[in-house]
């Protein structure tokens, strides 16, 4: 296992940028849960709260032409990539101006313009897609990379193992980012696999595997920079294991009583937003008002996004018939 080298020091402005994104994700999720309780979100939510440093750290290392695949817990990845929360709320509210025109909801959110190839309702479903995108990038002789986020649960899927083998064999420009939040749905890691460090699995595919503190946005950024650098120069894939924790249950409404109280408390003390706040105020010379200003900015952005989304029209029932096919052969019986 190669631990990443000591992160390069961030500037205050960079750190405040990461902080703002992490708070945006945190508050987007908290407010989505409240709005769901009020009946505005008809479907599932799988909150990303607690894992913000992974998405923000990795996405900070990416270039505009890079592409990503995500998971059922995908809002954080999409926001970290720069997606518009207004369109995301509109999607959650199942309105026509949602990012997926109300056809996907939380589990399938996408923004093609950002190279964000979608959340995914199938555990491990995005992993082969990212490798395929990396294959296409390589075939086009692009210097772009693909990133696949997935959880610890996905590392027991065939798609994970088949894809790591293929990506290593073909030296594809791809980052496999495993967010090990210690639970696959309700099942603790030691009850779903016999290893502690998922990064160990890289070695059986002759791939570099690294373990990173997933609650440390700077460490995540550094690991992602090293992996993208390698991938962009033909060095092939890396498996990054981010050790992290979800603060909430598997889905909104899951009380997560299967987790020991002391474990939850220990991880809450290592809340990634607390860690970056300490870094900003204690090491980088940031002030309490910098922090308050960033929080207020996020709150205003989300107020506006929610207000806009709430006013968007609902789809017509028959809109369900659109988009089944890209080429629908006028007149032929396809549906």
């Amino acid at each position: 296992m190669n631990a990443p080298t000591e992160p390069a020091p961030a500037t205050l402005a960079e750190a405040l940028g990461y902080y703002t994104q992490m708070v945006l994700i945190r508050r987007f999720e908290e407010r989505a849960a409240q709005l769901r309780a009020l009946g505005l979100v008809p479907g599932f939510l799988h909150p990303y709260i607690g894992q913000e440093a992974v998405a923000v750290g990795v996405c900070s290392a990416l270039e505009a032409q890079d592409v990503l695949t995500s998971t059922h817990r995908g809002h954080g990845h999409m926001l970290a990539r720069g997606a518009d929360p207004s369109r995301m709320y509109a999607e959650l509210f199942a309105r026509v101006d949602g990012c997926n025109k109300a056809k996907g909801g939380s589990l399938h959110m996408i923004d093609k313009t950002l190279g964000f190839l979608g959340a995914n309702g199938i555990v491990g479903g995005g992993i082969p897609l990212a490798a395929g995108a990396a294959l296409q990038l390589k075939r086009q002789k692009s210097s772009a990379v693909a990133v696949s986020f997935f959880g610890d649960g996905a590392t027991n899927e065939g798609s994970f193992h088949e894809t790591l083998n293929l990506a290593s064999l073909w030296r594809l420009p791809v980052l496999f980012v495993c967010e090990n939040n210690l639970y696959g749905e309700f099942t603790r890691q030691d009850r779903h696999q016999t290893i502690t460090d998922i990064a160990d699995r890289a070695s059986s595919y002759a791939m570099k595997g690294v373990v990173v503190d997933g609650n440390d946005v700077f460490a995540m950024r550094e690991a992602a920079l090293q992996a993208t650098e390698q991938a962009r120069h033909g060095g092939g894939p890396t498996l990054i294991e981010a050790k992290t924790y979800r603060h909430k249950g598997h889905f909104e409404g899951d009380m997560a009583r299967y987790r020991p109280k002391d474990e939850v408390e220990a991880w809450m003390r290592r809340d990634p937003i607390i860690l970056i706040t300490e870094e900003i105020t204690q090491k980088l010379g940031g002030s309490a008002s910098d922090i308050e200003e960033a929080k207020a900015k996020v709150e205003t952005q989300l107020d506006d996004a929610i207000a806009w989304a709430k006013e968007r029209p609902h789809p017509l029932p028959e809109d369900a018939l659109d988009d089944v096919f890209a080429n629908s052969y006028e007149g032929a019986a396809l549906l």
Binding site: P128, S159, T163
Partner: peptide, 22 residues
């Protein structure tokens, strides 16, 4: 490819999303 039908079809799908015609 290796004998990995899920990864092979999945890689084809992924490539197709960004311009490939596998």
């Amino acid at each position: 490819t290796p004998i990995s039908e899920e990864a092979v079809v999945g890689a084809a799908v992924g490539a197709s999303l960004i311009g490939g015609r596998p």
